Simulated assay, not measured.
Amino acid sequence: MPKMKTHSGAKKRFKISGSGKVVRERTNLRHLLEGKSSRRVRRLQVDAVAAPADAKKIKRLLAK
């Protein structure tokens, strides 16, 4: 059976941490930033761990 290809959209959005968790960026940080407080923008800059329910699907898209 052929190798499974990596999903191009998923590889741009997610990465696997050293411990095997799926890491993602937070939303609401692309535009309209003037209306958001500095505190909120700084908090949104920190990467988040994807929910365990989604992690299994994401790892499959990443062919891991």
Rank of each mutant, 00 (worst) to 15 (best):
S37M: 06
I58E: 00
K36E: 06
I16V: 13
V22L: 03
L62D: 02
V49H: 04
K3G: 13
L29D: 07
L44C: 03
A50L: 13
T6M: 12
E34M: 10
A48C: 10
G20C: 04
H7E: 11
L32Q: 11
P2Q: 07
L62H: 02
M1W: 04
A10I: 01
V22F: 02
L44N: 05
R39F: 10
A51L: 12
N28I: 00
K36A: 06
E34G: 05
A63M: 03
D47K: 14
D54L: 09
K59L: 09
R24Q: 12
N28K: 15
Q45P: 00
S38H: 11
S19H: 06
Q45L: 09
M4E: 14
S8R: 07
L33V: 03
A53M: 10
M1N: 09
K56M: 10
M1S: 11
A10N: 01
L62G: 03
P52S: 11
A63E: 10
L44V: 01
V46W: 04
V41H: 05
G18R: 05
K21S: 07
K59F: 00
T6C: 09
L29Y: 09
K3R: 07
A10P: 01
I16K: 03
H31Q: 08
R42L: 14
L29F: 08
M4Q: 13
R60Q: 14
R43A: 14
H7Q: 06
R24H: 09
R24K: 15
N28L: 14
A50Y: 00
A53V: 15
K15T: 09
T6N: 06
G35V: 02
L61G: 00
L61S: 04
L62I: 03
A55M: 05
V22H: 01
A50W: 00
K3I: 09
A10L: 01
P2I: 09
R43E: 13
V23K: 08
G20W: 02
K11R: 15
V22I: 14
S19P: 01
R30F: 06
P2C: 06
G35F: 08
L61Y: 03
R26H: 08
V22P: 03
A53H: 11
L61I: 03
K36V: 08
V23H: 01
T6I: 15
R39Y: 12
K12H: 07
E34P: 04
H31L: 04
A48R: 14
A55G: 06
Q45E: 13
A51E: 10
L32A: 13
G9M: 05
R42V: 10
R26K: 15
G18A: 12
V46A: 11
R26V: 00
K59M: 08
T27L: 11
R39W: 11
K64S: 13
R24L: 03
R42M: 14
K15W: 08
R13A: 12
A50T: 04
I58S: 02
M1E: 09
I16M: 02
M1Y: 05
I16G: 00
N28S: 12
N28G: 12
R60K: 14
K56N: 08
R40F: 13
K3Y: 11
L44W: 04
D47Y: 05
A48M: 10
D47L: 04
L33S: 05
L32C: 09
